[in-house]
Design a binder for these strands. Structure first.
Length: 296
DNA sequence: AACGGTTCCAACCGCTCGATC
DNA sequence: GGATCGAGCGGTTGGAACCGT
């Protein structure tokens, strides 16, 4: 048996709020507050609305401190930074933006900011066609030398150096997207490879660059992308290709692509790591290595 | 002007979590 | 300890507004 509905859906009004309803809710809340019970509020206020609907209307629209209108560039950067750090924790992100609601931030991200980011207008440097991509061979060697897919000390990961940050004109706050976009280039759009990384399962590194959601979520430990030889590598998704697809689309790769195209995948398979993929244990970590390595 | 496609955002849905009994 | 409930959250949807042809 499911849980009881919060209201009698047949007898509540749905859809857009009228100015009269807005005024009723606003004046009631200004006088009485929520009383700690949104469910009972509509009855008390004389509204034929669900309590949840009242709450949402108040929090997202009627609150006096709500900021309406366009986002500033500074807000854009804050959202980008926090999204990288936390993932889609919209309420947490919104809490850092006075006057903005989680719904606002979420809508803004989904409709504008993500695209703006892809177009190269926010906190990153986009590669030109002839820019040099990092060497996978070097990555592999470095990975092996660090032995980071062994059961090592979780705190042994090196931090991204200040030099590495400054090299690409990024700061530590926007590092995640900066690096991802560092890799984002027209030359890598056409072939996508999902890579098995089963040994990652035994290697829960607490990489300071990995977002909280990446560490905690079943889907988002994939949000890092490494690139070599015109290929994009994604960690395995425990059979969940949709998650991988979403990650790719989030980062601007066009759909359809060759995630499930076995022919292309195999053709490309040997190009970047003939010995297999155990080296690509932690893609969030791989994110930063090219820059560290290039400094060596 | 009319139409179709796209964008944007308010609102809803369903889930999780914590509090309470 | 389990059931129930409300609050809060993220994902999704519907439709109005906008834009291009």
């Amino acid at each position: 048996m499911g849980r009881a509905p919060c209201c009698d859906k047949a007898n509540v009004k749905r859809g857009p709020w009228s100015p009269e309803e807005d005024a009723t809710l606003k004046s009631y809340l200004q006088i009485h507050g929520t009383g700690g019970n949104w469910i009972a509020l509509p009855t008390k206020a004389g509204l034929r609305r669900c309590g949840k609907s009242c709450r949402l209307r108040w929090l997202n629209y009627l609150r006096p401190d709500i900021k309406h209108g366009g986002f500033t560039e500074e807000e854009d950067n804050i959202i980008c930074t926090l999204y990288v750090q936390m993932g889609s924790k919209w309420s947490a992100i919104a809490s850092q933006l006075p006057g903005r609601t989680d719904n606002d931030v979420k809508n803004y991200w989904n409709t504008k900011l993500k695209r703006k980011l892809m177009a190269g207008k926010v906190c990153h440097k986009k590669l030109n066609d002839n820019d040099t991509l990092p060497s996978t061979t070097l990555l592999t060697q470095k990975a092996q030398s660090l032995d980071f897919h062994a059961s090592q000390n979780q705190n042994s990961m090196p931090n991204l150096s200040t030099d590495a940050c400054s090299e690409f004109n990024i700061d530590e706050k926007n590092m995640g997207f900066g690096l991802i976009h560092q890799f984002y280039s027209p030359q890598v759009k056409d072939v996508v490879k999902e890579v098995g990384a089963s040994s990652r399962n035994n290697n829960h590194n607490h990489n300071p660059l990995m977002s909280l959601s990446q560490e905690g979520s079943s889907i988002s430990d994939s949000s890092s992308i490494a690139v070599e030889n015109n290929c994009v590598l994604l960690p395995e998704h425990a059979g969940n290709h949709e998650s991988a697809e979403q990650v790719l689309m989030d980062f601007g790769f066009e759909f359809p692509y060759d995630l499930t195209n076995n022919l292309n995948c195999h053709e490309r398979f040997g190009e970047f790591s003939p010995s297999g993929y155990s080296e690509w244990v932690d893609f969030s970590y791989v994110d930063i290595k090219p820059h560290l390595l290039n400094k060596n």
